[in-house]
């Protein structure tokens, strides 16, 4: 029996490759996801690893759409806070003796 599949598309001008890849990875327990760029879209082809009911497929696809939106927000937070994050880690390790100059 063929395993179920589904195709989801995203506007490539709104979402980065990194965002789509990270979102797809979180679904690796349920499906393999083939990601391709087709013109102005990301095309994500899901091949589910186990038989699923149509309503479960629909729910998974909807979850994936939300996950892509979440990953996009995460990317923004990471970009905006990168410097702060590094300076906080520098302070955190500053008295540990774990960093020593040669």
């Amino acid at each position: 029996m063929d395993t179920p599949s589904a195709v989801v598309t995203f506007d490539a001008s709104l979402f980065s490759e990194e965002t789509i890849k990270k979102a797809a990875y979180t679904f690796a327990a349920a499906a393999s996801v083939d990601i391709r760029r087709s013109g102005v879209e990301w095309v994500c082809a899901f091949r589910f690893l186990r038989p699923m009911k149509p309503e479960d497929i629909h729910e998974t696809v909807e979850s994936f759409r939300i996950e892509v939106l979440d990953q996009d927000l995460r990317e923004r937070v990471a970009a905006e806070t990168r410097e702060t994050r590094n300076s906080i880690l520098a302070v955190a390790f500053s008295r540990t003796g774990l960093q020593r100059s040669e």
């Binding site: 955190a92 008295r95 540990t96 003796g97």
Partner: peptide
């Protein structure tokens, strides 16, 4: 808040040393 956060992170990681 940034400094306070850094101090809290340092406290959390202090066990490493």
């Amino acid at each position: 808040g940034r400094d306070l956060l850094a101090l809290k992170v340092r406290t959390r990681l202090s066990r490493l040393s």
